[in-house]
Amino acid sequence: MKKYKITVYDEKTGEKHTIEIEMSEEELEELAKKLAEKHNVKVRIEKV
């Protein structure tokens, strides 16, 4: 498992949230996809 920083940005409201999380790359990609689809936000992932 690796550490990642996830930034979620909502273009409508301008809200931006960043968290650090430790998980596998596959789980992370699935999480990012679900966030983007369900909440209509942009998701950026960076390795820490």
Results as ranks from 00 to 15, higher is better:
36 A>M: 13
32 A>M: 11
32 A>Y: 08
5 K>Y: 04
42 K>C: 14
13 T>W: 05
33 K>Y: 05
28 L>Q: 02
31 L>M: 06
48 V>D: 04
30 E>R: 11
38 K>Y: 08
31 L>W: 10
30 E>V: 12
33 K>A: 09
23 M>P: 00
20 E>K: 06
31 L>P: 00
31 L>I: 06
39 H>D: 12
21 I>A: 12
1 M>P: 11
25 E>S: 06
37 E>D: 07
45 I>V: 08
36 A>H: 09
22 E>S: 07
7 T>F: 08
17 H>K: 08
11 E>L: 15
39 H>L: 09
34 K>W: 09
17 H>L: 09
46 E>Y: 02
44 R>F: 15
6 I>A: 00
21 I>L: 13
11 E>C: 15
19 I>T: 07
13 T>R: 04
32 A>L: 12
46 E>K: 02
45 I>H: 00
2 K>R: 10
7 T>K: 02
1 M>I: 11
43 V>P: 01
27 E>N: 06
46 E>C: 14
12 K>G: 11
2 K>T: 14
22 E>G: 02
36 A>W: 09
12 K>N: 10
30 E>G: 09
23 M>Q: 02
32 A>I: 14
40 N>Q: 04
47 K>V: 15
40 N>E: 05
16 K>H: 11
15 E>Y: 13
47 K>Y: 15
33 K>Q: 10
21 I>H: 03
25 E>Y: 06
19 I>A: 06
32 A>S: 07
24 S>G: 08
47 K>C: 15
14 G>I: 01
43 V>W: 05
40 N>L: 04
42 K>L: 13
48 V>K: 03
10 D>G: 02
32 A>C: 13
19 I>Q: 05
3 K>F: 08
18 T>Q: 05
16 K>G: 09
4 Y>I: 03
19 I>F: 15
26 E>W: 10
12 K>V: 12
28 L>D: 00
32 A>R: 13
48 V>A: 04
24 S>V: 07
31 L>K: 02
11 E>G: 06
36 A>Q: 11
4 Y>P: 00
9 Y>G: 01
41 V>E: 02
35 L>G: 00
8 V>E: 04
21 I>G: 08
26 E>V: 09
20 E>W: 13
10 D>I: 06
46 E>W: 02
15 E>W: 15
6 I>Q: 00
39 H>A: 13
24 S>E: 08
40 N>P: 02
14 G>S: 05
18 T>H: 05
47 K>I: 15
12 K>E: 13
19 I>K: 03
10 D>K: 02
39 H>S: 12
10 D>M: 07
21 I>E: 05
11 E>P: 10
30 E>C: 05
34 K>G: 06
15 E>A: 12
19 I>C: 14
30 E>Y: 11
26 E>I: 11
39 H>T: 13
23 M>E: 01
33 K>L: 07
27 E>Y: 06
37 E>G: 10
26 E>F: 07
48 V>C: 13
